[in-house]
Design a protein around this nucleic acid. Structure first.
Lengths: 234, 234
DNA sequence: CGCACAGTTGACGCACATCAACCTGGGTGG
DNA sequence: CCACCCAGGTTGATGTGCGTCAACTGTGCG
């Protein structure tokens, strides 16, 4: 067991304090290049990953070749708890950027969660929040236009990144291609490009060099029907 | 404390054995008429509900008046764990039919889950499965046509109801209006009606008198890309 | 220089939305 | 017991958001 002491904490000093519980279960830190699978759909994983720096996403591949991105993960997030706990993965996880990940063996998290009530409570809370975010994406895909959906995503990411100290007052890093953004929004890359043009034209955002700037957050939140309460952890 | 002994078990004898843990925390059984809210969006709930018989659904109301149904719940399911644990509800839960519900005070489930590791593990597992279902709906809304989506829902409901002994070899009760089905599928009721006609015409299903019959399950699963593995609890 | 990848634009088509009329069966009250 | 009502469902006509296909541009890199 290595545990928290061996892990370089500089990149994520502002992660929530409770995250320490997870770090204690970790055995090592791993660096992964961008656009690498850290979990392949269909695999039986041996370790689960806590994201320390960089961004990843969950996705699901369909038989017809289409792909739906189901979550974007930021530092502090558990990438693949379900796969670890249930021993099967019907989704994959891939890095968007160069990432640092804490590896926690599935065995250990399962064994430890038999006795460690604090860990169990933490996992349950994380999982409740994770589903709240998934549900919000579902609502967007079902009822919001693509402009609203994209605006909503930008607002959500800003709040989540800001909570871990990775956003400025009006911007954050977002190294994602339009193809991937489109796969998250359930639209084509061609249409996404037009949606972005519209939002730029309306003076709502600027997106260049991997940085998204929200020029008018109040207006963007209003337009996309964003309410941050589902993101609160407590 | 009443607990499991006072609750009538006839209607749900085939619920998973572990559900007993939840029943022990319940204080009373409540009967609710159809189309009643058991949790209103925005409320701060005092109790959480375990569904014993009947069907309910979760929904989210948007500012523009639209509604997205985010889950359909069947006997054995926890209707509103997130609202209970986090103390706020940004979704509502409504009955589809006459329902019997076990009420568990939020206080008790929170207090009990501080010490009861078995309960915590159960809640975590339920929550993992709940998100797996939500994620599958999300994938459908993002990447599947409305025919595939509806077929997928029918396959899912059959598996879930069959698991608790509430389906025959090829049918189950489904007392839901087309407006509600449409709100779950993210389409209009008009279009849903046409989708149903198409599926009936293709000899895939029959829907009458609140009973859905799947005439060709193999074909329906193939057509909608259904794979049941995400529904397994273990 | 030339290739590969990401993004943009235009033309056209389709899945689904919208609006409106109409049908149907079960429940209610006179 | 019939007249009426009304929620739920069906159908047709027309509109639109987004998909598809294809060509083109910009940019970084070997």
């Amino acid at each position: 067991m290595l545990g928290i002491d061996q892990i370089e904490l500089d990149n994520f000093q502002r992660l929530l304090p409770e995250t320490e519980l997870l770090l204690r279960a970790a055995v090592r830190e791993k660096a992964v290049d961008r656009r690498q699978d850290i979990l392949c759909q269909g695999d039986t994983p041996q370790v689960t990953h806590l994201l320390l720096s960089g961004h990843t996403f969950r996705y699901r591949l369909l038989a017809n070749g289409r792909r739906q991105i189901t979550a974007i993960l930021v530092p502090g997030d558990l990438c693949d708890l379900e796969a670890a706990m249930l021993g099967r993965a019907n989704y994959g996880v891939m890095t968007l950027t160069y990432c640092s990940l804490a590896e926690i063996p599935c065995k250990r998290i399962i064994e430890q969660s038999i006795n460690d009530r604090a860990l169990l409570r933490l996992l349950l809370r994380r999982q409740l929040r994770d589903e709240a975010i998934t549900r919000e994406w579902l609502v967007g895909l079902g009822q919001r236009t693509s402009v609203e959906r994209l605006g909503h995503l930008f607002c959500e990411l800003w709040v989540r990144l800001n909570a871990v100290g990775l956003a400025t007052a009006d911007s954050f890093e977002m190294r994602i291609t339009q193809v991937e953004l489109a796969e998250a929004m359930g639209i084509t890359a061609v249409h996404l490009s037009r949606v972005l043009r519209e939002m730029r034209g309306a003076g709502l955002i600027r997106l260049s060099g991997g940085t998204l700037t929200i020029l008018n957050r109040t207006e963007l939140e209003r337009l996309s029907g964003f309410e941050a309460n589902y993101l609160q952890v407590s």
